[in-house]
Lab assay of single mutants.
Amino acid sequence: MTEYKLVVVGAGGVGKSALTIQLIQNHFVDEYDPTIEDSYRKQVVIDGETCLLDILDTAGQEEYSAMRDQYMRTGEGFLCVFAINNTKSFEDIHHYREQIKRVKDSEDVPMVLVGNKCDLPSRTVDTKQAQDLARSYGIPFIETSAKTRQGVDDAFYTLVREIRKHKEKMSKDGKKKKKKSKTKCVIM
C-alpha cells in the first residue's frame, strides 16, 4: 500500500485542523484551538488504489514558523489553505509557496490551493482571484467548507493525484537520464 505524506499549511484560523478532522473523523470542530502540530493517518481508496494518507496539520501562528522547514522537508505534497473571508490569509499563500519551493529546492512541488469556509456569506476573496492565482502557479484550486464537508475529500484526493503525477514524471525523467548515460565512448 502506497503511503502519501501530505502537509496542510496556511495562516492561523483558516480551518486547516477543521478540514483535516472532517476528512479523518467526519465531524466539524467549530471551536478554535490553535494547533502546534498534529499528525493523522487514514486509509482510503483513490482511483481504485488503496493508500495510506499521513497528514500533518501544522501551526499557522507566526511564533511556530521555525518548525516549518522541518515538516516541509518531509512532506510530499501540500494543501495551501486560505479562508475566503480573510484576504490576508490569501496573500500569505505566496509566502508559504515560496518557502516550500526553497526548502524542497524545487520549482515543481505537488500543491493544491484550497479556499476554505465557502459556506460563509462574508467572502472577501473572489473565486476568480483564487483561480487566477492557482493557474499562475500551475496547481489545482478547490473551494471547501469544513463545516458542510463540501470539497473536503476532493481537496485531499486531488493532492494525492498531483503527487502521483509528480512521481510518474520524475521516474520518466530518471529513465531518460539513465538511457543517456548508457551511451559509451570508444577510443581507438
Rank of each mutant, 00 (worst) to 15 (best):
V125G: 14
V125E: 07
V125K: 04
D126M: 07
D126T: 06
D126S: 08
D126C: 08
D126V: 05
T127P: 08
T127K: 10
T127M: 11
T127R: 08
T127H: 10
K128R: 09
K128T: 13
K128G: 12
Q129A: 15
Q129G: 11
Q129Y: 13
Q129M: 14
Q129R: 12
Q129W: 14
A130E: 08
A130Y: 15
Q131E: 14
Q131L: 07
D132K: 09
L133E: 06
L133I: 13
L133Q: 07
L133M: 12
A134L: 01
R135E: 15
R135C: 13
R135K: 15
R135F: 04
R135H: 06
R135P: 03
S136C: 05
S136A: 14
S136L: 11
S136F: 06
S136R: 08
Y137L: 15
Y137W: 15
Y137G: 07
I139G: 02
I139W: 01
I139T: 03
F141S: 02
F141D: 00
I142D: 01
E143D: 13
G151F: 02
V152A: 11
V152Y: 11
V152L: 12
V152T: 06
V152S: 06
D153T: 13
D153C: 10
D153V: 14
D153Q: 14
D154T: 09
D154Y: 05
D154N: 10
D154H: 09
D154E: 14
D154K: 09
A155D: 00
A155Y: 00
A155G: 05
F156T: 01
F156M: 07
F156H: 00
F156W: 10
F156P: 00
Y157Q: 14
Y157E: 14
Y157N: 12
T158I: 03
T158F: 02
L159V: 03
L159G: 00
L159Q: 00
L159I: 09
V160Q: 02
V160T: 03
V160P: 00
V160H: 02
R161T: 15
R161G: 08
E162C: 03
E162L: 06
E162V: 01
E162I: 02
E162P: 00
K165V: 08
H166K: 02
H166N: 10
H166A: 05
H166E: 04
H166C: 12
H166M: 14
K167L: 01
K167C: 02
K167A: 06
K167E: 05
K167G: 07
K167I: 01
E168G: 06
K169W: 07
D173T: 06
D173A: 05
D173V: 02
G174A: 07
G174W: 00
K176Y: 09
K177Y: 08
K177M: 14
K177S: 15
K178A: 15
K178H: 14
S181E: 13
S181W: 01
S181R: 03
S181F: 01
K182W: 01
K182G: 10
T183F: 01
C185L: 02
V186P: 15
I187Y: 13
I187D: 15
M188V: 04
M188G: 15
